[in-house]
Amino acid sequence: MSTLKTTLTGYVGYRGREGHYAFLLHRITGLGTVLFLVIHIVDIALVYLAPKGFLDVIALYQTTLFGIGEIGLVFCVFFHGINGLRIAYFDMFKPANWSIETGRNSTRVTLIATLILWLPATFFMVRNILIHNFGLFGG
């Protein structure tokens, strides 16, 4: 149990600002994505294993609560990809960029790039929820 506590204390207590947050977000978004990936493989497998069950799962995914989760998932996918690109690029081509200042700036750029991809996607997903679940915009 002490390993668990030590690691968690390090995750929370380390004061590395942007670089630290990027590390935490990379882990959280990765774990979040893989959690849904496992669920998603099984739910798609239902089209072959139990087609009736697939329709029940889709009905669940169409609820507002899961719609909000879906918007979070899309953020995870975009952030994890862009931050992964940043890490790989620095490692392979610009190791000198692993300084505190460049690390902080590039983390901000990563977040902005994520928002540029995520906000338009969110607009369409929120619109879908409002149309189908709330009867707005002629739904």
Binding site: I58, Y61, Q62, F66, G67, E70, L73, V74, A121, F124, M125, N128, I131, H132
Partner: peptide, 8 residues
């Protein structure tokens, strides 16, 4: 699948 087609 999530944005253009949509789960609905």
């Amino acid at each position: 699948q999530d944005v253009i087609v949509g789960v609905h």
